[in-house]
Design a protein around this nucleic acid. Structure first.
Length: 271
DNA sequence: AGTGCGGCCTGTCCGC
DNA sequence: TGCGGACAGGCCGCAC
């Protein structure tokens, strides 16, 4: 579920409860996430002061004076701010308890998320080192997409979803961005003009920015740190709309698999 | 080097 | 009502 806007919504939701505070303890009920939560993480985090909560792609970075915790929500993870006595529910895998008693509680049915630790600059961590530019940052441009696509035979949708090319664009927002910029998801990345790549970058930025403003997209199990769902779903133009009329031209929205991911598009608006 | 696919997990839905 | 299979928002790591 969580793509960049949902991770950013989570960051905005947990940050006020963490930043500037000291961690009183960590409670781990299930270490078997995508990777085992390292044995030493309770010791590293307990007593550490969180300087700030950052996001890189879809990774959340809890920066402390001692090092950085790296968290990912996977496909089904979410974080909530809970009171000390809040009842546990199924798949509540860990709590990071702050000095005021409030805690960040991580829930993840599919356990594709992770919680890792690095003493080093997190930018050097193997999971982050090769990530492409932030889609909402200054380093993404049509020129960049054009030059990285040169000679590639992959589809533009796969290129856009490749985290080594651009960080954090997942399936929902790739579909939506391609619709907004009028590009067919199956078009070969290497055969798209720089002008159209400019349009695509604008589409990506517009979709992500608006989704963040809406608190992300809730399809079934994404909730922000305050328990509220995201409201971008009602603004989706193609994702999960197979067979429904294109809101621009009325053509029936198609669904097809591209690189094992469900893709949605309008054959009239996207070429 | 670039590309394609299996795998990690649980939950849900659909067809039989 | 039960059961098998496909699929779901991510992404690593391997084989070719």
């Amino acid at each position: 579920m969580p793509e960049l806007p949902e991770v950013e919504t989570t960051r905005l939701g947990i940050s006020p409860s963490l930043a500037g505070r000291s961690i009183a303890g960590v409670v781990i009920r299930e270490r078997r996430l995508r990777w085992l939560i390292p044995e030493h993480i309770e010791e590293r985090l307990t007593g550490a002061v969180v300087s700030r909560v950052e996001r890189r792609g879809k990774y959340l970075l809890l920066r402390t004076g001692r090092g950085t915790a790296i968290a990912h929500l996977g496909m089904s993870g979410s974080m909530r701010i809970v009171a000390p006595d809040a009842n546990l529910v199924l798949h509540d895998h860990y709590d990071i308890v702050m000095d005021n008693g409030a805690a960040v509680r991580f829930n993840d049915p599919r356990r594709f998320g992770c919680l890792l630790w690095t003493d080093d600059d997190p930018a050097n961590h193997p999971l982050l080192a090769r990530l492409g530019p932030e889609p909402l940052g200054a380093n993404l441009s049509g020129e960049y997409l054009y030059s990285t696509a040169k000679g590639r035979r992959v589809t533009i949708k796969q290129h856009l979803m490749n985290s080594n090319i651009v960080a954090g664009v997942g399936n929902i927002y790739a579909n939506e961005s391609l619709f907004r910029s009028g590009i067919h998801p199956r078009r070969a990345a290497g055969r798209i003009s720089q002008k159209r790549m400019d349009d695509l970058v604008n589409g990506v930025r517009a979709v992500l920015t608006e989704a963040i403003r809406c608190g992300g997209t809730t399809l079934r199990d994404f909730y922000a740190a305050d328990g509220k769902p995201g409201y971008f779903r009602i603004k989706l133009m193609v994702y999960d709309r197979a067979g429904m009329p294109c809101q621009n031209c009325g053509e029936s929205i198609r669904q097809a698999m591209i690189g094992q991911r469900s893709s949605y598009y309008c054959v009239r608006c996207q070429r």
